[in-house]
Design a protein around this nucleic acid. Sequence first.
DNA 1: AACATATAACGTAATAATGACATTTAATTA
DNA 2: TAATTAAATGTCATTATTACGTTATATGTT
Lengths: 244, 244
Amino acid sequence: MSKIIPNISVDCVVFGFDTNTKSLNVLLIKRYLESEDDDEPLVNDYVLTGYHTFEQETIDETATRVLKELTGLDNVYKKQFKVFGDPNRLMNEKDIIWAQNENFNQRTITIAYYFLVKTHEVDLENNIHHPQWFPVNDLPELGFDHRDIINEAYADLKEKALYKPIIFELLPDKFTFNELQDTYESILGNEMDNRNFRRKLLTKKYIIALDEKQVGVSKRPSQLFMFSKDVYQKTYKESYLINI
Amino acid sequence: MSKIIPNISVDCVVFGFDTNTKSLNVLLIKRYLESEDDDEPLVNDYVLTGYHTFEQETIDETATRVLKELTGLDNVYKKQFKVFGDPNRLMNEKDIIWAQNENFNQRTITIAYYFLVKTHEVDLENNIHHPQWFPVNDLPELGFDHRDIINEAYADLKEKALYKPIIFELLPDKFTFNELQDTYESILGNEMDNRNFRRKLLTKKYIIALDEKQVGVSKRPSQLFMFSKDVYQKTYKESYLINI
DNA sequence: AACATATAACGTAATAATGACATTTAATTA
DNA sequence: TAATTAAATGTCATTATTACGTTATATGTT
């Protein structure tokens, strides 16, 4: 049995994109504690999943382990983006109640990761944590400093999406151009002209048109595309284009 | 007296740019341990500065404190870029010798920051750590996992320099256009056409031509420029230009 | 005073990328 | 076969980029 390091943990922000609602979502689990006199619950909000690092484990392994438990997924895009270590970060009223109940009260610093997953690959049903997706722009009440953590993760994702092809981590293997644009618009929070967007990205050799169309839609079906990481890595030249 | 958290530390990569040698440098301190029989020293290499976090201190405060001790500087650009937490990260031969001598051997995770400083503002003389500048491309033998840490810091800096105006943190308040270009070239590791470089950056309103020239040079003196963070923040529109 | 030296500073033309804008096409369903 | 729905596309004016060599302005030297 592995021993945990009591003052070091990992928290995981799991991002998914829902192509139906066109919403960038975050996976959260409920934090619930009943009062003794069965009145109002003492704690009833949502949190990220996380766990302490084991003594013989890298931080990355902790993150991977936590994600696997939550989603069942391996080999997911992962970014360690910030450490949250304020001595008072778990000192809200509800966090203190929770900490007393759960028997942790030491100063804990947490290393925060975000993950980009394909929503349809996450099985929410058979999951002891009962995770739920929430739009990143419409989050429920959150415990600990997890709202901060999510906001920082989102800010980092926004920036990174502009110059790395990470958006494809959020899309199915086969996607339409409109889905791609929707995903960009959700992440970046702005609308784009569809003609200009297509022109720009259609020239990229690593976005490959498939000989295949959407099926089962009652309208003109879109063409499907795929992203080739391989072609990307081979053809992308770091332009060193200063863009300040 | 503040108590330290024994398994959590901060390490600081301090970058400076030397306009004379046109070299991006890192500030290092010596790690030295003599053997008892006075032969070869047991440990004789260089390391970053770092220190443990105090119990009532944020991680950012730790970093700021360590930098202040090393350089005397406050209010310096600082980026927390990565955590190094491999269980075996301090397990090289020399690190073990050092750890026995210094009496630490527990697993320690370190939160790494880099700082961008103006070289001429750092006083190397009156400093108990005796720090020295080394070119990032020609580092001496380094202790612990500090070569990794520096390389990761450098990679992050390279990326960030392309889309944030952080380069000015490395330059004096008044700089010439050629110094600006030299700094970019050192960081990005490529040469640029000087006409195109000027044209591109001269159009930026936040790079302001001063009514002032270099003095004491035996050639045509350059015009001096300054960077206005204020103008930058007011005029920069996030273009949301996808650049993948 | 004229010249040498050294580096700062600049221009042009061809090509590529961007931004702004509305219509046509291709499938399903009634 | 007509209606519906969303997919897909074209053009033009403006701006940005690339590639390239010459001129300007200071100091130092004779």
